[in-house]
């Protein structure tokens, strides 16, 4: 399947292991990715907070570029926040022909235009796995089932709320895909309170206490539920849950130390890739325990 691919900013910035692991995993899933390397930041909700029309125009530019990719089934993103911010803009652009026309005027000089209707979509990698590839087909490709690995799913707000905007009418299981995926890859999905809660990242510069109490609490809940690691489709969640984890300990007054995987890293492990190919050494919280368990699986 050919896809226009929007990697987002953070996957090429502070979580390069995410961008790298997608590049390794995609060919194993027969995904041909055409990277939109001229597209701009989705605005992460901050640009919309500043100026809604600006956010809508910037994302219309990205959508228009994706629509120009010949033969692409749709657009793929690898970040819950991109998904949420872009879905929000798309909802407004699709709702009003007048408004869309006004926005498209700003794109005219480059011959770009966002066209609504038809089958065009923008889906997170998680949704691609569930809806375009399918868990059954995925199961057949598993080389190294993640048997015995207890994985706590962390969805990221923007991929599960608001459900009305995010296509839950058509795909009601979107808030369960991560759990279903873990099981499809042979792992055990851990149930804990924080799976669909907020990582706190959006207020890390504005209210550090609120932000890191949130991150710390979810990590602690996952540890108490017996998880070996977390997995998330959102690199911003990853920043608060992994990069900030040592700092978060202070705010929940206990030791943490649980690794957090990016979604494509987990998929890659199950498809037989090695941890170093997936950049698993580039985490703040060591993934050594997960790597050891995976190595034991291979030996068994």
């Amino acid at each position: 399947m050919k896809l226009a691919y929007w990697p987002g900013c953070v996957s090429r910035g502070f979580t390069p292991e995410l961008h790298g692991s997608v590049a390794k995993v995609a060919p194993l899933l027969d995904l041909e990715l055409v990277e939109l390397d001229r597209a701009n930041c989705c605005g992460a909700g901050v640009i919309a907070e500043h100026n809604q029309e600006l956010a809508d125009t910037l994302n219309a530019r990205t959508f228009a570029m994706a629509q120009q990719v010949q033969g692409a089934a749709g657009m793929m993103n690898i970040c819950s926040t991109c998904q949420g911010a872009q879905s929000e803009c798309q909802e407004r652009l699709d709702a009003s022909a007048n408004y869309r026309g006004e926005v498209n005027k700003h794109l005219e000089p480059e011959g770009l235009s966002y066209q609504t209707g038809g089958e065009w979509w923008n889906k997170n990698f998680l949704w691609i796995l569930a809806e375009e590839i399918g868990f059954d087909a995925l199961r057949e490709r598993v080389q190294r089932p993640l048997t015995g690995l207890r994985i706590a799913p962390f969805y990221g707000c923007y991929i599960v709320r608001p459900s009305k905007r995010l296509g839950f009418d058509e795909f009601p299981q979107r808030d369960a895909y991560l759990d279903l995926l873990i099981e499809a890859l042979g792992g055990e999905a851990v149930e804990y309170a924080g799976a669909r809660k907020c990582c706190g990242f959006p207020v890390i510069t504005m209210n550090r206490t609120t932000s890191l109490r949130q991150a710390g609490r979810h990590l602690a809940d996952a540890i108490d539920a017996g998880a070996d690691c977390l997995v998330t489709p959102c690199p911003l969640c990853h920043l608060n849950l992994d990069l900030q984890q040592p700092a978060a300990q202070k705010f929940v007054e206990r030791d943490l130390g649980i690794p957090v995987l990016h979604l494509p890293q987990m998929v890659g492990l199950a498809l037989g890739l090695e941890p170093e190919e997936l950049g698993m050494g580039k985490h703040v919280v060591s993934t050594a325990d997960v790597q050891r368990k995976v190595a034991d699986l291979a030996a068994a």
Binding site: N40, N51, Q52, E53, L54, D56, T57, L58, R61, R92, A95, S96, Y99, E102, H106, L107, P109, E110
Partner: peptide, 19 residues
Amino acid sequence: KQVRRIFDEVESHDERIEL
């Protein structure tokens, strides 16, 4: 340059357009 032009155009409106 395109992104900058979009910023200039949208931010130069007198009225904020919200849908």
